[in-house]
């Protein structure tokens, strides 16, 4: 099983194709605000781009641990899957994620969680994002 990692962000051109396709495929929305991956600049455009994205925590998974209803289910390769029916929209997972990779969707009142589907990887023109085998 694979997880997706932002491995070569030095090469990022800031096209945001990853965000556009993540929002489209996973949330059927045109807005980049619906994307599970966020590309931001650090120190303005003259700085480097950073990807704020699920790190695929494996054994200790803070967001899953804190979820009071068991709506975040650990993926075997790392990261979590969201069971929307169980989610009560308490936002605890958002604050539990140290890298701030979980975004809360105010419209649906559910968190936007990366499921490591790899669509962003397919549309990254510079190989910054890659699907890698889980690290043993």
């Amino acid at each position: 099983m694979k997880v997706f990692k932002a491995v070569e962000m030095n090469r990022c051109i800031g096209c945001l194709s990853c965000m556009i396709t993540c929002s489209a495929v996973n949330q059927q929305d045109h807005s980049i605000l619906k994307s599970a991956i966020r590309i931001k600049t650090s120190g303005g455009l003259t700085g480097k781009f950073v990807a704020i994205v699920c790190q695929a925590c494996k054994d200790d998974v803070p967001c899953a641990e804190i979820c009071p209803t068991g709506a975040l289910i650990k993926r075997p390769a790392g990261g979590v899957l969201l069971d929307k029916d169980k989610c009560i929209g308490c936002e605890l997972c958002v604050s539990a994620c140290t890298v701030e990779a979980i975004h809360f969707d105010q419209e649906t009142q559910k968190p936007i969680v990366c499921k490591h589907c790899g669509v962003c990887v397919r549309f990254c023109p510079h190989g910054c994002l890659q699907l890698v085998e889980e690290v043993q």
Binding site: S17, Q28, D29, H30, S31, P125
Partner: peptide, 25 residues
Amino acid sequence: GDNTTKIQNFKDYFRSYQEIFKSVT
């Protein structure tokens, strides 16, 4: 701004998006 817009016809949209993306890259 923080506007969101539901995609109305995902299949058509994403097929076109992919075709164009592929011809670009």
